[in-house]
């Protein structure tokens, strides 16, 4: 018994280290997608699996920069859909992309406020008002970079109460009532339903975020990876993406 335990432990460690191959005849397609794509890609996953029998699409949803790091560190990934070009470039510079990435969707900022807009926010310039608690994304993440761009374009400087690490955290601060207004993407407001209202502002045109997708050169299933990419780029993908609020490239 004394000798068994360490041996069993070692087995567990080894098995979990190489646990990506499914032993039951199904093929796994690993799709790494930005967190903002959760809803749209969830629907596309089902469609793809319905069209391809024996294929299990696994979505890994996280911040684009985390996904890019994971891919560059050798995580098993077949397709990468990023929320901005910078993180796709990181993977491309490391030689991880097959062919050229293609833009499949756009997203832009909007102001999330409490339902009914009780504080009467009317546009971007209002966010500098002193009576408002405003929350934005940190400059290091895509939504924060877009926020900075809009600030530069409008000459309005914000004094946020917090610079959050991702756009969902900003949205949550508004939903919980801790912040009066937050800068998020149009798609985030769509997915929040009636929990928040949004105030669109024309200056958001100055910072449009482009979403690139690519099949990866390390793909275990290169043919399936290309097919999934084409599904996203095609008519079906367009429909799902539009439904959740993404713009066309």
């Amino acid at each position: 018994m004394r000798k068994l335990l360490p041996a069993a432990l070692a087995c567990v460690l080894v098995a979990s280290a190489c646990g990506t191959s499914a032993g039951d005849g199904t093929t796994t397609l690993n799709v790494f997608a930005a967190a903002s794509l959760t809803e749209a890609f969830g629907a596309l996953e089902k469609q793809f699996e319905a069209q391809h029998e024996g294929v299990d699409v696994r979505l890994n949803l996280a911040g684009s920069s985390q996904l890019a790091s994971q891919i560059n560190e050798g995580a098993p990934a077949d397709v990468f859909a990023s929320a901005n070009e910078k993180n796709m470039d990181k993977v491309m510079d490391a030689g991880g992309v097959e062919g050229r990435p293609q833009t499949f969707a756009t997203n832009q900022l909007t102001i999330a406020v409490a339902p009914g807009n009780p504080k009467g926010v009317e546009g971007f310039a209002d966010l500098a008002r002193e009576d408002l608690t405003v929350v934005v994304c940190a400059a290091q993440v895509p939504c924060g970079a877009a926020t900075e761009e809009v600030e530069r374009a409008t000459g309005v400087t914000l004094a946020p109460a917090s610079e959050e690490q991702d756009v969902k955290a900003v949205l949550n601060k508004v939903r919980l009532g801790e912040a009066d207004a937050g800068l998020v993407y149009v798609t985030d407001v769509t997915s929040a339903g009636d929990k928040v209202d949004s105030v669109d502002f024309p200056e958001s045109e100055r910072a449009i975020n482009e979403y690139p997708i690519a099949a990866l050169s390390s793909a275990g299933e290169p043919e399936l990876a290309r097919q999934f990419r084409d599904l996203v780029l095609g008519e079906v993908g367009r429909k799902e993406l539009t439904r959740v609020g993404f713009g066309a490239p």
Partner: peptide
């Protein structure tokens, strides 16, 4: 911290 206090340089980060 990040949930309750947020993240702002010099104040809560």
């Amino acid at each position: 911290t990040i949930t309750f206090a947020g993240s702002l340089e010099g104040v809560t980060r």
